[in-house]
Computed example of a mutant assay.
Amino acid sequence: MRAYWQLTLAQLRIFARNKQVLFFTLLFPIILMLALGSFIGGGNSLELTIGIINKDQSDASKNLEELFYENEGLEVIEYEEQDVGKEAIENGDIQLLIEIPKGYEANLQNADKPFSLPVYYNEKNLTTSELGLTVVNGIIDQYSKDLVDYQPLVTVEKIGIEALNIRYVDFLVPGIVAMMIMSNNMNGVAGQISAWRERGILRRMQGTRLKASTFIAAQITARLFLNGTQALLVVLIANLIFKIDVVGSWLALIFFIVLGTLAFMSLGFIIAGIAKNPESAGPIAGFVTFPMLFLGGVFFPISNMPDFIQPIVKVLPIAHLSSALRETMNIGTPFLELGTETLILGAWLVGGFALASYVFKWE
């Protein structure tokens, strides 16, 4: 037991001395989180931008124009020339252009027939244009009913349902934590163990009474402490900047951080056993981790991936680690309902260390 604690403390001292590696290991996921969370979006709402040309400039036309300004879902830009407004649609600066023709107020006073407002839209962007037309039609329809004091026989009662509102940054942060755990343990373990083997440190350890199990246990404990601290620090920074709360249990979150660390550490030991030297350990680890970044649901939902990739995705450890962290942080899913993620990560852990013990070499 004494040798175990001495090795654990020695490994932590090695981490502490290499401040540059520690700094950049932690800095990269934080910068990535801040960049993607800030620039790709923190919300899931869609704002429509419309242009208005008021050629009538009467009290009635200004009242109609004011309705669009009052709508919180619309951003209104006023244009004087039709050609300028049409060019804005073509450039994508606005989605719709509404023209209030001259004589609008006079036509309302006569009320001989319905008055049509020209609305221009981009035919190549029908999805957004149709959404904008629906909003505009609703505003105009209600305005028309108010003008003639129309009282419908049947009305719609709007009953809002408070649904789960998950922003992209809420989805992203658990994926960043999973990515950091994978990278630190696969790349870190493989590189360090390979370097120690090449420098003869492992051979000298083997010549002592030190057991392999004690050496591995000390490595696991030190890395659990380091990776757990880094992962929790990322979560706290995300909470401070993006107001992300852990909806579920903190104990469940810590459990999956520990389980994910162990599972990826076992893969790191396998790579360390296969690699002939430190120079080859890095490329091998990169060859394994790089596809996982895109197939493991770190940046994008797994459900959006093609059907033929789904069977591969569903067995990757990072996919289940990302899913477990998101379920815990964003939804608050109870730990007992995450049995599939626990079993698959546990299988990678057991299978990984079993294979690592077979391929691991002291020299």
Rank of each mutant, 00 (worst) to 15 (best):
S45I: 14
S45Y: 15
L46M: 10
L46A: 13
L46I: 13
E47W: 03
E47M: 15
E47Q: 15
E47T: 15
L48F: 08
L48R: 06
L48M: 10
L48K: 01
T49P: 01
T49E: 11
T49M: 06
I50C: 06
I50S: 04
G51F: 06
G51T: 05
G51N: 06
G51I: 07
G51K: 04
G51H: 01
I52Y: 04
I52K: 04
I52S: 04
I52F: 05
I52E: 03
I52L: 11
I52R: 02
I52D: 05
I53W: 06
I53G: 01
I53K: 03
I53P: 01
N54M: 02
N54V: 00
K55D: 14
K55A: 11
D56C: 04
D56L: 02
Q57K: 11
Q57C: 05
Q57W: 03
Q57M: 07
S58A: 02
S58T: 12
D59L: 10
D59R: 06
D59C: 01
D59E: 13
D59Q: 12
D59A: 14
A60W: 04
A60I: 05
S61D: 01
S61A: 09
S61E: 00
S61Q: 01
K62Q: 10
K62R: 12
K62L: 12
K62N: 09
N63E: 15
N63I: 04
N63K: 14
N63L: 13
N63D: 11
N63Q: 15
L64E: 05
E65N: 10
E66G: 03
E66V: 04
L67T: 09
L67H: 10
L67W: 04
F68T: 09
F68Y: 08
F68V: 13
Y69N: 09
Y69I: 09
E70P: 00
E70A: 15
E70N: 14
N71D: 13
N71A: 07
E72G: 03
E72H: 11
E72I: 08
E72Q: 12
L74S: 08
L74I: 08
L74H: 02
E75V: 15
E75H: 10
E75P: 01
E75A: 13
E75W: 06
V76L: 06
V76T: 08
I77E: 11
E78N: 13
E78H: 09
Y79R: 11
Y79E: 11
